Structures are given as structure tokens and as C-alpha cells.
Computed example of a mutant assay.
Amino acid sequence: MIKLLRSYLFWTYERGSFHYDVMVTLILLFLFVGPRFIDFKAKPVETLTLDPSEVVVKEAGITEAGKIFVYQIRAQDLEGATTDSERQAAILNVIEPISGHVTLQRFEPIRDAKGKITAYNAWALR
């Protein structure tokens, strides 16, 4: 038994042999089935860093009233806005020079891994 384990550990079997196929199968099982049962505690983090006065615009859909766009705005661009109405006005001040007149539907903060607000996503109807 020890000899068998040592052979598996040092991968001494030839390609195409039964034991080689067993080792490859175990590796593939670990790669494809392991993430379903093993919690690696991996959480995707928003890594998009925006330069000053840079706004990311994504199309979010079409309604009867028009197109909906999602604008991602840096939190530093909204400095001084402490209430929701002030944030809404500040967001519109950033968006309207880019897109013209829009109707802001909603906005929500984007937080980093430590919980600090780094940017805002704003949904606007154009």
C-alpha cells in the first residue's frame, strides 16, 4: 500500500495506464467538483478605478419612455452632498453635461471590501 501511495505521489505511472487515468480523474474531479463543496471565501470586488471626472456609462435596457442607462460616478465627484436630494442634484450635475437632459430613476452606492463608498451607480432614463 505504501508503494502504491508513493507511486501516486511521485507520478511514476506511464501515460495510458490504469493508475495514470485514476490520477487524472481525481485531479479533474477536484477542479470541477471541488468549488461546489469547498468554500474558498472568494468574493468578487469592484476593481474599476475611475480617473477624476470620468464616468462609466452602460445601457441597462429600453422602456416605453426611452432608454435606461447606468452611470458609474466616483464618490469624490459628489463631495459635499450629504442628503439624498443633494446627491441626486450632484449626480444630475455630473450626468447632464454628458447625456443631456435625463430623468434620474434611482442611485445606489458601490462599496469596497472595507465598506467605504467608492462610487455610485445611477440609473437614468434618457
Rank of each mutant, 00 (worst) to 15 (best):
I68T: 10
R74L: 14
P109G: 11
L28K: 04
F10M: 01
G61K: 00
S85W: 09
E108R: 13
F30D: 01
Y71A: 06
R87I: 05
R36F: 15
D21M: 08
F37S: 11
Y20R: 07
S17V: 01
V33L: 13
F32T: 12
P97T: 13
E64F: 02
E46F: 12
T118R: 09
V24T: 00
E108L: 12
D39C: 05
F69Y: 10
S85I: 13
E108G: 10
L104G: 07
S17T: 13
G66F: 12
I73Q: 03
Q76Y: 11
R106A: 14
W11G: 01
A119N: 08
R74T: 11
A65P: 05
V70P: 06
E59R: 13
V45K: 10
I95F: 04
K43T: 12
R15S: 06
L92C: 11
I68E: 12
P97V: 11
G34E: 02
P52K: 12
A113F: 06
R106S: 15
G80Y: 02
R36A: 14
A65N: 11
T83C: 05
E54P: 08
R87W: 02
I27D: 00
I91R: 03
Q105E: 15
V57H: 05
T25W: 04
K43H: 11
F40W: 14
A60F: 05
P52R: 12
F107R: 09
R15H: 09
D77N: 12
T47A: 13
I73D: 04
G16A: 07
I27N: 09
V24D: 00
S17H: 01
L28H: 01
V57L: 15
V70K: 12
F32Q: 04
I62R: 15
R74S: 15
T82Y: 08
D39I: 02
E59Y: 07
L48Q: 10
V24E: 00
E96G: 07
Q76D: 15
Q105C: 06
G66S: 10
Y120A: 03
P52V: 10
A124F: 05
V45C: 07
L104S: 05
I98L: 15
D84G: 03
V22W: 06
P44F: 12
A60P: 00
E79K: 15
R87T: 01
Q76C: 10
Y120Q: 09
I98N: 11
E59H: 10
I73A: 08
G66K: 13
S99L: 09
E59I: 02
F69V: 01
V45F: 09
D77K: 05
A75C: 09
V57Y: 06
F37C: 09
I73F: 12
E86S: 10
Y13M: 05
L50A: 08
A65C: 10
T103V: 13
V57W: 06
E108M: 08
A81Q: 02
P35N: 14
V33N: 08
D51M: 14
R15C: 06
D84Y: 09
V102C: 06
A81I: 00
D51I: 10
K114N: 13
L92N: 00
E14C: 01
S99H: 13
T118A: 05
V45S: 11
L104A: 12
F32R: 00
T47P: 04
I110F: 03
K114W: 09
F30V: 04
N121A: 01
Q105A: 12
E108C: 03
R74N: 14
R74C: 10
A119P: 02
F32W: 07
K41C: 13
E96F: 03
I98K: 15
Y13D: 04
P52A: 09
G100D: 06
I91L: 14
K41A: 15
